[in-house]
Design a protein around this nucleic acid. Structure first.
Length: 551
RNA sequence: UGGGGUGUCGCCAAGUGGUAAGGCACCGGGUUUUGAUCUCGGCAUUCGCAGGUUCGAGUCCUGCCACCCCAGCCA
């Protein structure tokens, strides 16, 4: 696929060494169902599922559902849909951290029995106060020296619901003076009397990420636990837990850098905020970097996969330029997307020498055009009439240097049709251009041009008579800055990120079951399935065409 | 400040002691009835900085500097 089979990234190098030494490859993608997946998750999905496929292994889709307060079933379903849409298959390896709640509980008891964990009665505030700081060690909890029997009893009571939320936690007994704050007797279990989307009211204590993740990895015999850089500091804890329970499986945790993309944000907290504060229309708003948003904007899965391949896997902090993403999107669409003509901001053109006779002659042999310039996708008919619309921006009264469009006295080709010359500019009293009067050259018919004329350029057009109205939504970056300052979210947003136009499109485009289009000279667009109706079709702009103009 | 990481072209990224891949972007030429696509060419005497080891250093050593992450009963 990639034209640049660069050296393997450091993770694949490591894995291929392990495979050479006889290891299997079992990975996992472990989303928390508290939001929808975004392009950053796609990087991880492509890595985990990709690596599994490349080395003949398998990849679990495991929901990390240890915090029922924030998670829900709708996200569980949406995440599965997104992963599947991206083109990955977890087979029957769909699991949840909650599948292992019982084992996690038993193992926690083992930890207590081994005097490696204790029940702590400190409040959250007290715990913060005794944790110490980056430079000062913490102090031991007064509960730290409870007997094994007392801890076992207390933990049982926690599980039985005899204590209120926040009254007790189970903590690992490690080292309050560790320079790594994660090792200062971290919390393993907390009390939460809340309903869990899968286990219902079976539990009122829930394990924390640090305790859960490594154990689930071990239980699933994950061979390579790949995660992002911010978990690097948690690795000693990951290892501590597995070293202190007797599962005899110890996956290595390997960290890589998360994706940064210009003009957007990737944190679920912020994306959630954008949705809940209604700065966008929803998780699938086409301006969102979510998988569903990109899909609704018209981006296809191969483009996302290609993008993830091109950005690579390293430990360097990175911010990818949007131009690379756009490149991948266009590259994917270019090869097989139907072309159509759609006038976004219409300017009427009257063909003064067009008569009923010429109209009659044309109907005997209508204009047609291929759906695609290279790939054979068939042809469509292009109705033509005395009045047509061209793009307002395709006409200038005063011609700029190297201008390849229409201006007074000049000629331009109507794409796939005739050459016209602008004879007269009709204006209203205020001086606004109302319409253009042009003559067409019968000999210049596309495909059989005998006119010998050399027009300045080519413009798209739609017949006024047959053209259909449609809504076209133009999307731009959600944020103003490449690296938005999110401390003031509202102010960082691009007010021009969304614009809807009432456009006119050639009739053939609305007839079939074609979803993705390239509107010639403008960009790629996709039918919006949720907002289109029988009365009006809505198109979302996926990405503009590359546009190199002088100046 | 303690700990953990990272520094190779504008943005990514190969490079694993033998004389700086590739992609995107950018600049120039060609083709073109999309200023698209396609195509050809250009684009790091230098690898955060300073020393050192070596016949030879982006790769090894030492010392600096910069940036990122960590003080949730979030993940």
């Amino acid at each position: 696929m990639s034209e640049t089979p660069a050296g393997l990234d450091f993770i694949r190098q490591r894995i291929s060494e392990d495979v050479a030494a006889g290891s299997r490859v079992i990975t996992r993608f472990p989303p928390e169902p508290n939001g929808r997946l975004h392009i950053g998750h796609a990087k991880s999905i492509c890595l985990n599922f990709g690596v599994a496929a490349e080395f003949g292994g398998l990849c679990y889709l495991r929901f990390d559902d240890t915090n029922p307060e924030k998670e829900n079933e709708a996200f569980v379903q949406a995440i599965q849909e997104d992963v599947r849409w991206l083109g990955f298959d977890w087979g029957d390896h769909l699991t949840h951290a909650s599948d292992y709640f019982e084992q996690l509980f038993q193992l926690a008891n083992q930890l207590i029995s081994a005097n490696k964990a204790f029940v702590c009665g400190l409040s959250a505030e007290e715990m913060r106060e005794t944790r110490g700081t980056l430079t000062e060690p913490g102090v031991n909890s007064p509960s730290r020296d409870l007997s094994v029997a007392e801890n076992l009893a207390l933990f049982r009571e926690m599980r039985e619901g005899k204590h209120g939320d926040g009254s007790y936690v189970l903590r690992a007994k490690i080292d309050m003076s560790s320079p790594n704050i994660n090792m200062r007797d971290p919390v393993l279990y907390r009390i939460r009397h809340v309903h869990h989307q899968r286990t219902g009211n079976d539990w009122c204590i829930y394990p924390t990420y640090d305790y859960t993740h490594c154990v689930c990895d071990a239980l699933e015999e994950i061979t390579h636990s790949l995660c992002t850089l911010e978990f690097e500091d948690h690795r000693p804890l990951y290892d501590w837990v597995l070293d202190n329970i007797n599962l005899n499986v110890h996956p290595p945790q390997i960290e890589f850098s998360r994706l940064g993309l210009e003009y957007t944000v990737m944190s679920k907290r912020l994306l959630n905020k954008l949705v809940s504060e209604q700065h966008v229309a929803g998780w699938d708003d086409p301006r969102m970097p979510t998988i569903s948003g990109l899909r609704r904007k018209g981006v296809r899965a191969p483009a996302i996969r290609d993008f993830c391949e091109r950005i690579g896997i390293t430990k360097q902090n990175n911010t990818i330029e949007m131009s690379l993403f756009d490149f991948c999107v266009r590259k994917d669409l270019e090869a097989d997307t139907h072309r159509a003509m759609c006038v976004l901001e219409p300017l009427k053109v009257v063909i003064t020498n067009w008569t009923e006779d010429t109209q009659g002659a044309l109907s005997a042999e209508p204009l047609t055009a291929p759906w695609h310039p290279k790939k054979d996708l068939g042809r469509r008919v292009l109705p033509f009439s005395k009045e047509i619309f061209i793009e307002r921006s395709d006409f200038e009264e005063v011609r700029p240097r190297k201008y390849k469009r229409l201006s007074p006295g000049e000629m331009v080709r109507l794409r796939m049709a005739f050459i016209i010359r602008c004879d007269e500019v009709i204006k209203d009293d205020a001086g606004n251009i109302q319409e253009l009067h042009c003559t067409y050259f019968p000999e210049s018919r596309s495909g059989s041009d005998k006119s010998g004329l050399k027009p300045k350029g080519v413009v798209h057009w739609v017949s006024a008579m047959e053209g259909q109205y449609c809504d076209v939504r133009l999307y731009e970056n959600l944020f103003l800055e490449k690296q938005p300052d999110v401390s003031e979210l509202a102010g960082a947003l691009n007010p021009a990120s969304f614009k809807q136009l009432n456009a006119i499109i050639e009739p053939a485009a609305l007839l079939g079951d074609i979803h993705h289009f390239q509107f010639e000279r403008q960009g790629y667009f996709v039918k919006d399935e949720t907002d289109s109706s029988a009365l009006k079709t809505v198109f979302n702009r996926t990405v503009t065409l590359r546009d190199i103009r002088p100046g």
